[in-house]
Amino acid sequence: MIRRGIFKHPKNDLEGEIRRDRTPGPSVPEELCVTCPTCRKMLFRDALAESSYVCPHCGWHFRISARRRIEITADEGTFRELNTKIVSRNILSFPGYDEKLEQARRSESGKDEVVCGTCRIGGFTSCVFAMEPSFMMGSMGTAVGEKITRLFEYAAEHRLPVVGFTVSGGARMQEGILSLMQMAKTSGAVRRHSEAGLLYVAVLTNPTTGGVTASFAMEADIILAEPGALIGFAGPRVIEQTIRQKLPPGFQRAEFLLEKGFVDQISNRKTQKRLLTRLLEFHAGGADE
C-alpha cells in the first residue's frame, strides 16, 4: 500500500517546521542519544539534561514533560503536589473519548494533565503549575480547568505567588461547552488572586494556543515566553485555510509576540530559573509591602 502524503510538500515554512519537530519527537526519548530536530546534531541524553533540555549547538528548546519542568524549576525536594485525584472523565459520553484518555494514560507521562503544587524557587515559596504536552496535546478540559482554578484559589488563600508553565493545543473538544467554560472559570480565579495583590508569572512554552492563550496564559502580570515557541489564538493551519495565503516566516513565534508587545521577555530555559527567582524576590510579599 502506498502511504498517503509522502509526496506532499509542506504548505509553508511554519508547517514544515512543525512537521520536522514532529518526526524525531521533540520530547526527550529514553535512548542514550538524541538528534536535535533543528540542527540535526547528535546529543547525549545526560548532557542534554544538564543543559535543561536545550540543544547546546543551536539553542532548540526540547519539549519536556510537566514533571521535568517542575524538576528543573523547583528547588530540590521542595515540591508538594496538590489535587492529584482530579482526572478527566468522559462527562458527555463523547464517542471515542474513553479510548483516547486510556491511550494518553498509557504514555510515558501517565495520567498527568497539569501538575499543580507548591515549591520553592530560588528559596521563594510559590505555587506552580505545569501543563503536560503529551496528554492529548495539553488540551484543557474540566479536570485541567478545575486544577488550575483550585491552585489560584489556594494561592490567594495562602498569599502565595503563582508561576505557571503553559503548553496547550486549546480547549478539549470532547468535553464540549464544559471545556469552553473553563476559560471563564480559570479567568475568575486568576482575577481573584490578582485582586489580592499577588504576583502571577506565566511562562508560555511551545505551543500555547486556543482557549489557554485566550484565558490564563495571557492574564499573567508578567508573561515570559521560551524562544521559538508558537503562541497564538488560532493555529497557523487554520489561519491559512481561512485567509488562503501563506503566513510570513516567524509568524506567531515568541519573538513575534515580543515585537507586537504581548510578552515581557523571551526567556531561555537555561537562565529561566534565575529570572523567575529575581521576579519572585522583587515581588516578595505581594502588593502590600
Binding site: A184, S187, T213, A214, G232, A234
Partner: peptide, 10 residues
C-alpha cells in the same frame, strides 16, 4: 486576539 478575549473574560 487571545489577549483581547482573555482580558474580557477577566
Amino acid at each position: 486576539q487571545g489577549q483581547a478575549i482573555a482580558e474580557n473574560l477577566m
